[in-house]
Structure formats: structure tokens, C-alpha cells
Computed example of a mutant assay.
Amino acid sequence: MPLKSTQSAYGAVAVTIHWLSVLFIIALAGSGFLAAGMEDTAAKAAVLRAHVPCGIVILLLTAARAGWWLLADRKPDPVPMPDWQDRVSRGVHFLFYVVIFGMGASGIAMMVLSGAGLIIFGGTGETLPDFRDFGPRIPHGVGARLFIALFVFHAGAALHHHFVKRDGLLRRMWR
């Protein structure tokens, strides 16, 4: 598989970033929803010690993806589909970027404003603050739910193209 994309398939760099992102996003969502429901602050801090670095990795992967597309590679030619589906697809991909960068910004703001970053990674022995007391918690929670909806819609559309339409769309993002 070439590093860069061809007219009919994504290259190794794009494929690797995509599937690494999927794995980290699943870990991120799972740890985030788990932490949100926890009362035990020590256990919550332990979960957040995984959640926060996963969020940073996703931000870096997303920035790398944007840079890759802007500076180094071209996406394959689109698979023929009705105009409305193409517009929805582009909209979902754009919203992924908006939500990921928004989630990153709200997560960082929450860690800074609450002082939780020092508690989680500095081992100060203090208990975690109640994140509901900090403004960035609301967009972070809304963003998480919106992201899950986009993720399910995106995966469902890919599976529909693969199993129902059989148009080769999913194979383009696989080795």
C-alpha cells in the first residue's frame, strides 16, 4: 500500500490515522462516560489518567490528519452517489473536526480551570473537583453525545455502502 492515496483508495498514512483514531475514540468515549458516572474520586482520577492522554492523542491525530490532507495528500475520487448523500458525508466529516477540536478545547479548559490536571497527574492527594461546577463541562458533555451520534451515523453509512450498495467504499479505507 503506498503512503499517499490513489484515485481509488486511501494511502497507508490516511488509513493508519483513521483506524488509530477509531481505537482511541472508543477508549476515550468509554473512559469519559465511565468517569462521568463515578462517585469515588480516586477511581475517577485513575480513569481520567487514561482519558486525558487519549484525548491529547486524538487531538494530535486529528491535527496530523488535517495537515496531511492540506499539505501532503489528496483524497481518492468520490464514489458515485446522489448529491444529497455527498453533502451529508462532507457535513459529517466537517462536524467530526469541529467536535473533536471543540472537545479538546473544552477538556483542556476543564482541566485548567478546575485544577484537576495537577490533581490527576501531580498526585497532590487532593480530591477531584465537581466538574459540573465548571462551564466547559456542558459543551464537553454535549460534544461527547454529538460525537457518538456522528460516529454511529458514519459507521452505519460505511456499513450500508459495504453490505447493501456493495460499491467498494469501505474497502478504500482498508488495506
Score class of each variant (00 low, 15 high):
residue 1 M to V: 15
residue 4 K to H: 10
residue 7 Q to A: 15
residue 8 S to M: 06
residue 11 G to H: 02
residue 13 V to F: 10
residue 14 A to S: 04
residue 18 H to A: 04
residue 22 V to P: 12
residue 24 F to N: 01
residue 24 F to K: 05
residue 25 I to H: 14
residue 25 I to P: 10
residue 25 I to W: 14
residue 25 I to T: 13
residue 26 I to E: 03
residue 27 A to H: 03
residue 29 A to H: 08
residue 30 G to T: 08
residue 35 A to F: 02
residue 37 G to Y: 04
residue 39 E to T: 14
residue 39 E to S: 14
residue 44 K to S: 11
residue 46 A to G: 07
residue 50 A to V: 11
residue 51 H to L: 04
residue 51 H to N: 05
residue 57 V to F: 11
residue 57 V to R: 09
residue 60 L to P: 00
residue 60 L to R: 03
residue 61 L to I: 03
residue 65 R to I: 03
residue 66 A to C: 12
residue 67 G to V: 00
residue 68 W to Q: 12
residue 72 A to D: 04
residue 75 K to C: 02
residue 76 P to Q: 09
residue 76 P to W: 09
residue 79 V to W: 15
residue 81 M to S: 14
residue 85 Q to E: 11
residue 91 G to T: 13
residue 92 V to S: 01
residue 97 Y to P: 01
residue 98 V to T: 02
residue 98 V to P: 00
residue 100 I to S: 04
residue 102 G to E: 01
residue 103 M to V: 06
residue 105 A to R: 08
residue 107 G to Y: 13
residue 110 M to S: 14
residue 111 M to R: 08
residue 116 A to C: 12
residue 116 A to F: 07
residue 124 T to N: 09
residue 126 E to S: 14
residue 127 T to G: 14
residue 127 T to C: 01
residue 128 L to Y: 01
residue 129 P to R: 08
residue 132 R to H: 13
residue 132 R to I: 13
residue 133 D to A: 15
residue 134 F to L: 06
residue 141 G to P: 00
residue 141 G to K: 03
residue 141 G to L: 05
residue 142 V to A: 06
residue 143 G to D: 03
residue 143 G to H: 05
residue 145 R to Y: 15
residue 146 L to E: 08
residue 147 F to R: 00
residue 154 H to Q: 05
residue 163 F to Y: 13
residue 163 F to T: 15
residue 165 K to T: 03
residue 167 D to H: 00
residue 169 L to G: 05
residue 171 R to W: 01
residue 174 W to K: 12
